[in-house]
């Protein structure tokens, strides 16, 4: 009895102290999660992929620039200019649309190859967001993903590796670890978690994602499909399975992707889904840019192996 009283007494008196130490530990772990310095290689690799997609997407805008970006076209500025949604295009007279577009392409090309990245990374975000904010009636998931990738990449020294800047740098091999690399990487990772969670939750509002017909409805949409998928009508359970799996995967992504052993499987399923969207629904740009974002889950050391070994190079811890 005396021992029991002593145990309870100790537990009660020790609780505040334990809460404090746990809180301190948690805060330290949270701080390290977001700010522990890491190497730039993951983001540098991602810059090349995302920058290439931004360049391509912007080049395609240019094929019908006057129709999409002038007041005499599909989207007059007085119709689409939402207060607080800035775009450089709202300041560009129609006569200057072409020259400004070519300057944007040049900036994105420099960004992709990593030239003048300290400036071009911010230009890339401004350009991608500006095109999207000026032409909101013609945007879709591609623009959303490309824009947040550009924003987060701009927070980090994403031109420090795999870039013209790195080639021109006098002090070869002196790659500094930076908290900015970690926070940018984490923001991309967490943003993906938020995106998939709400994509999954939104699907729960719909009947087709419950009765298993959503994949059929998507696959049988003539305007989307690029490959005949009507064979699914003959094997309905496949459509049902893919429907339920899509929802389950999206809703569990945020929890499972942080487990190192499960991560490859989670990302492999996502890659299959997005490449399937590209192959069967013709949205290669969206499917690819989503897959590019997955590289944020690859530790920098994997990409460091791609570089020529340099004895002076700083070691880089894993970001996960």
């Amino acid at each position: 009895m005396k021992n029991l009283i002593h145990l309870v007494y100790t537990a009660v008196l020790g609780l505040p102290r334990r809460l404090v130490t746990d809180g301190v530990d948690l805060a330290a772990a949270y701080h390290r999660f977001w700010f522990a310095p890491s190497a730039p290689h993951t983001l540098a690799f991602l810059r090349i992929l995302a920058g290439g997609m931004m360049l391509y997407s912007t080049a395609v805008w240019g094929m019908e620039l006057e129709a999409f970006f002038t007041d005499g076209g599909y989207q007059p500025s007085d119709l689409v200019n939402v207060p607080g949604a800035p775009s450089l295009w709202f300041f560009v007279p129609d006569a200057w649309v072409r020259p400004v577009h070519y300057l944007c392409l040049a900036a994105l090309a420099l960004y992709t190859i990593g030239a003048g990245t300290a400036v071009t990374k911010w230009l890339a975000f401004v350009i991608v967001a500006s095109y999207a904010q000026r032409a909101p009636m013609a945007t879709f998931g591609l623009d959303q993903i490309a824009s947040f990738l550009a924003l987060y990449l701009a927070l980090a020294p994403c031109g420090a590796a795999f870039s013209v800047d790195a080639l021109l740098r006098k002090s070869k091999g002196e790659l500094r670890l930076s908290s900015r690399n970690t926070i940018a990487t984490r923001l991309i990772q967490v943003h993906l978690c938020v995106l998939y969670t709400f994509a999954g939750l939104a699907k729960l509002k719909g009947e087709a994602w419950w009765d298993g017909t959503a994949i059929w409805k998507t696959a049988s949409n003539l305007e989307y499909q690029t490959t005949d998928l009507t064979w699914i009508a003959a094997v309905e359970p496949i459509g049902h399975f893919l429907t339920h799996m899509t929802v389950a995967w999206e809703l569990s992504f945020w929890a499972l992707v942080w487990k190192p052993r499960l991560r490859p499987y989670v990302l492999a399923i996502g890659t299959s889904m997005h490449l399937g969207i590209g192959a069967f629904l013709g949205m290669w740009t969206f499917g690819l840019v989503m897959t590019f974002a997955y590289f944020a889950f690859v530790p920098p050391m994997v990409f460091q192996a791609l570089r020529k070994p340099s004895p002076a190079a700083s070691p880089a811890p894993e970001t996960l």
Partner: peptide
């Protein structure tokens, strides 16, 4: 809105709907 982050991420949701041409 300023950062072009104001999205719902409702891809093919709540239900895949008909196309409008």
């Amino acid at each position: 809105t300023a950062l072009y982050l104001n999205h719902g991420y409702h891809y093919f949701a709540p239900d895949p709907g008909p196309s409008t041409l």
